[in-house]
């Protein structure tokens, strides 16, 4: 055994891990405890918040904001589904037909991340504005009449509607969907597809039985990486929505930063976190991918 291997085997890894782990412990895990602790208190900013272990805080907070919870789930799920429908063909084309331009095309995919999150959401406000080209075109084609009827939009406009919020969320998290899909599609051994075709599978069938199952890890990672941030998002609803499109993130944000109703806000935040954890575990069981990282 060489000196290096011996050194690296025997020398403890813990000193290297210690500073980072301590940081994460104090500023990620300890805060979670304080969040739970705060969610069971009662009181107000002036008199202070007393710990009374009031579990009813959860029931109250969820009951009062049931609508926003449901809306967040619907918006996040729609945005994830849309992002998937856009990303899968996109990732497929880059992985299978990108050739020497693969890296360039991938750079285009992550290009939106090089502008600020709020600026690109404001750009959507410009694009969807009431007097803009998109809105007037949609209106003259009668598309808005149809979407108004479906409840996606209202009042012959795009801005300040559910459609605008979902469009913004889809846009902002799209690279989170495309990149994992690309990675899993890129890894597929092309000879497997050739084998399927040689064995008389037609193209759709080869896709369904070879490509799709092999890209499952990417689908799993991509949908989670999109859905999790999407469900807690409040910027798109704030900039592109109206009072009718408030999401749970908006409620948590205003309770914490405007109304100083910390216990109720903490209860909502903790519920969101717990809900996501349960969802991830169930989802992992269904898709059969236990390996998250």
């Amino acid at each position: 055994m060489s000196r290096v291997t011996r050194l690296f085997r025997s020398a403890p890894a813990y000193p290297l891990l210690l500073p980072g782990m301590v940081w994460l412990a104090i500023f990620f895990f300890v805060p979670m405890y304080y969040l739970l602790d705060m969610s069971l208190r009662t009181g107000n900013l002036l008199d202070g918040f007393n710990q009374v272990y009031r579990f009813a805080n959860y029931g109250d907070a969820i009951r009062e904001n049931k609508e926003q919870f449901i809306r967040s789930i619907i918006y996040a799920a729609s945005a994830t589904a849309l992002a998937f429908c856009i990303s899968y063909p996109l990732a497929y084309v880059i992985a299978f037909r990108g050739g020497r331009y693969k890296n360039f095309l991938l750079m285009l995919v992550i290009a939106p991340f090089f502008t600020n999150y709020l600026i690109r959401t404001l750009a959507w406000e410009t694009i969807l504005a009431d007097h803009g080209i998109v809105t007037s075109t949609f209106r003259s084609l009668g598309i808005l009449t149809a979407t108004d009827k479906l409840g996606f939009t209202s009042g012959q406009r795009l801005l300040a509607t559910p459609l605008a919020v979902v469009t913004g969320i889809t846009y902002n998290y799209l690279p989170f969907m495309t990149l994992p899909l690309y990675v899993s599609l890129e890894k597929i051994d092309k000879r497997l597809l050739e084998a399927a075709l040689d064995l008389y599978a037609n193209r759709p069938r080869a896709f369904m039985r070879v490509t799709l199952p092999l890209s499952l890890p990417g689908i799993f990672a991509g949908t989670l990486l999109t859905f999790i941030p999407a469900i807690g998002d409040y910027i798109n609803a704030y900039l592109l929505g109206s009072t009718q499109t408030t999401m749970i993130g908006n409620v948590i944000q205003s309770k914490f930063l405007t109304f100083n109703d910390y216990p109720s806000a903490a209860a909502l935040s903790f519920t969101l976190m717990a809900g996501i954890m349960v969802f991830v575990i169930i989802y992992a069981r269904i898709l059969g991918t236990e390996d998250l990282a």
Partner: peptide, 10 residues
């Protein structure tokens, strides 16, 4: 894997 709003608020 944690939404930013949960990290920020905690």
């Amino acid at each position: 894997a944690t939404p930013e709003i949960v990290m920020g608020s905690s």
